[in-house]
Write a protein that binds this DNA or RNA. Structure first.
Length: 537
DNA sequence: GTGTGAGCA
DNA sequence: AAACTGCTCACAC
């Protein structure tokens, strides 16, 4: 896909150039099938407003790429040399921080939701099956994946790929229960393991390995064995010197497999030298396209072309690309996983998609969303001073409106009043959402200080003791919650966990403010004047 | 401060 | 007929 030539092809061949999230290579898919899948997904999509919007976005991405390409071409050799020199120093700096002293395992349950259902209904294992419904699928078993059925694929499209597909309604309580069983096993190997959603975890097994006199391969076998014996579920394990590499490795021999990357600089550099950039956590479809358009295909290319990257991308992107290319990421443990997700949060939001609503019905939908958000904020003890309303029109185009509020609040009425002012209820929408930001941050939880909140909770406990249990202590977030709100509160954690099923907690370039707390100063120095320099000359 | 959009899982 | 949700960052004005 080098040139933007074939365009006007609305006829029978349009599907050929149609690459979507659903048609990428995944474990267990033969190449022969890819064209068929592409074609079916394309046929089911091409006339929808959603598809039009996708095309619009693709064009914008292509434009961005060509701008970057021409920016790259216009760089004078001496400018590029300057960037290269700075990049070189950044590489030396990062290399000095390389830590090979620890072994991290990334545990990834195989088709977790689907596998949970198979436990109760073994016959489902032999037929193509997906968890979810007509609108959206959350997981598919491996039999269904052979047909191209993917998570995050609309059910109606999956049915076209696989007419005999069996749908199973999701059962969050079941997943949560099984996840607890899995965690009980994992905790024996690292009591401070980091949870990544319901079906993922990072374990620092360094200490266990020292005590047990096992090789890493043997330990991974043992953990997979334990998990299977005690939960009847299979998982895949990746082992490496840091979490980023471990996560990449856990995907390589999926399902029910393992891959250990030797903790040696040379082995790691070899590994990244034929690691497709798309495998790097944080690099998705679009970034892959951009990098490939700039001639970078494997992770180590990001180091080779570090000067160019420095010239073209932001400081943050530069550093994360460089880390990926060197196979370096944080290898230290993170504070308690549950608390960590709240610390450093910048905003909280809630949004709903519906068919098409306007007028008073739209208004009451907005109110519902505001109320949900308000109660989540109350639970999390968050008050925001800035509100944003997000609106998606029927043609899938997005619009946001935001306002600063007179004071910090998590009050539903105040939020609704502000939100309603930002919406034109006459216009039909397919989605509406509300985001609150600019929190008043009292004593924010720093990385690694997992119990900083506890004294507060403890104090509260003593103080409220006389009040006869109008409150309930949530172990999950170590906070006191109004007793009446308990069910809702638990649901909230469940929903959050569920959502995280599709996310990763690994060190990634963007996302949820999980930035390194330290070690940036030198890097800052290298790149701080990037823009100025780029502009001159 | 506000608005838009991209990107990711 | 039908394509989610929550979060972050970049950039323009």
């Amino acid at each position: 896909m080098g040139t933007a030539k074939e365009k006007e092809d609305s006829g029978g061949e349009g599907w050929r150039s149609y690459e979507s999230v659903f048609t990428n290579r995944k474990a267990g898919m033969a190449d022969v099938d890819r064209d068929r899948i592409k074609k079916i997904v394309f046929e089911a999509s091409k006339d929808s407003p959603h598809f039009k919007n996708e095309q619009r976005k693709e064009q914008a991405a292509a434009k961005r790429l060509s701008e970057l390409q021409s920016k790259a071409r216009s760089l004078l050799p001496r400018q590029l040399d300057g960037f290269k020199a700075k990049a070189k120093r950044a590489i030396v700096e990062l290399e000095a921080s390389r830590d090979l002293s620890r072994t991290w395992f990334h545990i990834d349950m195989d088709a977790f939701f689907a596998a949970c259902h198979v436990l109760d209904r073994p016959e489902l294992d032999r037929v193509p099956m997906a968890v979810g419904g007509n609108a959206m699928i959350s997981t598919a078993n491996y039999a269904a994946r052979k047909f191209g059925v993917r998570s995050a694929m609309p059910g109606f499209i999956a049915l076209k790929l696989c007419p005999q597909l069996t749908f199973v309604r999701s059962d969050f309580a079941k997943y949560k229960k099984k996840a607890e069983e899995v965690r009980a096993v994992l905790a024996r190997y690292d009591e401070n393991f980091i949870e990544g959603g319901l079906d993922e975890a990072y374990l620092d097994v360094t200490r266990y390995l020292e005590g047990a006199k096992l090789t890493e391969e043997e330990l991974a076998e043992k953990i997979r064995d334990d998990v299977f014996v005690e939960t009847s579920l299979t998982c895949s394990i990746g082992g490496a010197a840091n979490r980023m590499l471990a996560k990449i490795c856990s995907d390589l021999n999926k399902p029910n497999g393992q891959y250990i990357l030797e903790r040696k600089r040379k082995a790691i550099l070899e590994f990244v030298s034929d690691l497709p950039v798309r495998k790097i956590p944080g690099i998705g479809k679009v970034t892959e396209k951009v990098l490939k358009g700039l001639g970078m295909n494997v992770a180590s290319d990001l180091v080779k072309e570090a000067g160019l990257i420095l010239a073209l991308f932001s400081k943050i992107s530069f550093e994360s690309f460089l880390r990926a290319g060197l196979g370096i990421s944080s290898s230290e443990a993170v504070g308690a996983a549950q608390d960590d997700q709240d610390a450093g949060r910048k905003g909280i939001s809630c949004e709903r998609t519906f068919g098409s609503l306007r007028g008073s019905r739209l208004e009451s939908q907005l109110k519902e969303i505001v109320e949900t958000l308000s109660s989540q904020m109350t639970v999390k003890n968050l008050k925001g001073k800035h509100i944003t309303v997000k609106m998606k029109k029927v043609d899938f185009t997005l619009k946001t409106k935001s306002r600063a509020l007179p004071a910090h609040t998590c009050n539903a009425d105040e939020m609704m009043e502000a939100a309603a002012k930002l919406v034109d209820f006459k216009e039909p929408l397919r989605l509406i959402g509300v985001r609150m930001a600019e929190f008043e941050h009292e004593a924010h939880v720093e990385r690694g200080q997992k119990v900083i909140d506890l004294p507060k909770a403890e104090k509260r406990k003593e103080g409220e003791e006389g009040l006869q249990g109008g409150q309930w202590f949530c172990d999950k977030c170590s906070r006191w919650v109004e007793l009446e709100g308990r069910l809702e509160h638990e649901d909230f954690h469940l929903a959050q966990d569920l959502h995280r099923e599709q996310l990763t907690l690994s060190s990634k370039p963007k996302g949820r403010g999980r930035k390194p707390a330290t070690g940036m100063s030198t890097m800052d120095f290298f790149v701080q004047r990037k823009k100025k320099k780029a502009g001159e000359g």
